[in-house]
Nucleic acid binder design. Structure first.
Lengths: 343, 343
DNA sequence: TTGAAAGCGCTAACAG
DNA sequence: CTGTTAGCGCTTTCAA
């Protein structure tokens, strides 16, 4: 045997008794090829086990059948679920997934995106860590590279994005607490600069004002000790809140822990609703009422949108061609809020 | 301006007033190039912002600066942490990460691995879902592709792997329970066919026999209902276990829940130690004693080993060149086991 | 120490 | 509808 090299286009052509271009056309579903010829070629392809050499295609300026995925943190369960779903769907469309964590660093994110772009990926899916305008992204988008943002909008670009109804979710939570008769509702969490969280704060704040109540936001509560201290302070105040809306998954669990340590009964003395559902929320004591968002839906919509964009002969910089898809949240009522609505 | 195409070798060569080969040699640190020539070339490279075109290198048979990562499930926190660490370290060495979930399917895993190999990745890191011999892997390994297994060994190959001391971890857990005076210790969980879990069962079983005790293993306990049923059955038996060693993170939490529902006090009536630590283990009621393994260490060792392999001019199929690195587990004593050792 | 030429496998552009 | 030609940007081989 000659070599166990992968067969080339030329070899397939020879075996099928046709020219290389015919084979190329068959492979790329190009123009019309005589059905009989096509048959012969397909037989030869099958027989030889031919597979395209992507390197050669890239060299000719084609795009790689690869999509890039950039998230702030791959070990965050939310983004890990997104990655799983994205990879799954991408594969089913013949794409592989190049993945990168930006470690919440906008510069790193840019570097990774540029590296990916230089590898001629077909599309880029990105949950940006850039709080300002993603100017550099505009340049990447041009030459056949489609970009879709998810979870966070891509400011300063005309890229589409898939987002979560964070405001409405926060309103749901706040309203639910109000329905239980609460007037002094605190809102606590961390990462208030990242878009989804700031949206939740906005939703809460507006809804409180709309109800004639005074919002009360505390941020930076990212670890158990900080949460403990905040709670101690609150409990010692003249009019402590009777309910808390927690902005982040982790803050919710720390709050539950701190409340228990201080022997504050939940929900009798203080009610709690947290944003972002998680596996163990139903096993907590008491089971935690949460506003759930679906990373799977988010990822699915995002990758599907991206794949559509890749397929369509997108008019570059078609002003206003960007879409924003918003995904709903879902209030999961368990026990930490006092149970089902009263009013 | 001509075009904003990336500059080519030829352009750099022209600007530096040398031949293309000289530039190529400078870039690849080849042979000896006159220092003065090198300077000129480097200046030109810097000025033009030249970057290698990987597609062209691939076409000449070089390997891509990409490593592949295949895990059973990207949304599993354990593997998500691995992915984060792998990607992080790979990047710091100039490699990008192509990621794929095998969805616990050996066939899918093989397909993904072959796809990656056909993309000329430099190395493959794989937590295999193949329970038998990975015959196909042997073939991939040959032509300059390094393979390292992690968390699960690569049976039937001469690939190195990085594993966790699952047996010893299980012994630690069992011994700890024995130290508290327990004699009837049950071992429960699911996925007993996957290597790490079967090792834990083996560790538990041997250790029980060695202590003159009767092992009692129940498997398939993958959801809350099954756990509830098992517990009900056990509690109704003549001599229910006084302690449980849980093989999986999820089973541990379900057990805690079911025990609480049945008003069984932990650890007074039944003690519990679980394998695999998790974020909320310390916030459970009671805080859960666990055998912790570090996905970060596992990933770090694995990717470093892989990078070493990629660098070294590995003698193919050097019989017995495969290494197996074992990582220790750590018993984290909290309250579900009855606290610190008594004897 | 350096350079020129050949060609990796593919596709766009043109012939037929 | 089909085939031939000419490179894409790089590295290997050989010559200077």
């Amino acid at each position: 045997m000659k070599h166990d090299r992968r067969p080339t286009l030329r070899e397939v052509a020879k075996r099928a008794g046709v020219g290389v271009m015919t084979v190329s056309r068959v492979i790329n579903n190009h123009a019309s090829v005589q059905p009989s010829t096509r048959k012969k070629v397909e037989a030869a392809i099958l027989h030889l086990g031919y597979q395209q050499n992507e390197a050669a295609r890239l060299l000719k300026g084609q795009r790689a059948k690869i999509i890039g995925l950039i998230v702030p943190d791959l070990s965050d369960l939310f983004f890990a679920s997104c990655a799983q779903t994205v990879q799954h769907i991408a594969r089913s469309h013949g794409y592989m997934t190049l993945v990168a964590s930006s470690d919440r660093d906008a510069n790193l994110e840019r570097a990774e995106a540029q590296l990916m772009a230089s590898r001629m990926i077909s599309g880029l899916l990105i949950a940006t860590s850039e709080h300002g305008e993603n100017e550099w992204l505009r340049k990447l988008q041009g030459p056949g590279l489609s970009v879709v943002g998810f979870d966070r909008p891509l400011l300063g670009t005309d890229a589409s994005s898939v987002l979560v109804e964070n405001r409405i979710g926060a309103e749901q939570a706040t309203q639910h607490l109000m329905d239980h008769g609460h007037k002094r509702i605190a809102c606590v969490g961390y990462d208030e600069k990242v878009h989804p969280v700031s949206e939740r704060i906005a939703g809460y704040t507006h809804h409180m004002y709309a109800a004639g109540l005074q919002p009360q936001v505390a941020s930076g509560l990212a670890d158990l000790d900080t949460v403990r201290n905040w709670l101690t302070g609150i409990l010692a105040s003249a009019h402590p809140p009777t309910a808390i809306f927690s902005l982040n998954h982790r803050t919710s669990t720390y709050l539950l822990q701190a409340l228990m340590e201080q022997r504050v009964r939940v929900p009798e003395e203080i009610a709690l609703v947290g944003f972002d559902d998680f596996d163990l929320a139903s096993l907590m004591q008491p089971p935690l009422t949460t506003v759930a968002q679906s990373p799977v839906d988010l990822a699915r919509q995002s990758i599907n949108l991206l794949l559509d964009l890749i397929r369509s002969p997108q008019n570059p910089n078609a002003e206003g061609s960007a879409v924003k898809i918003f995904l709903p949240t879902r209030l999961i009522v368990r026990s930490s809020c006092g149970g089902h609505k009263t009013g």
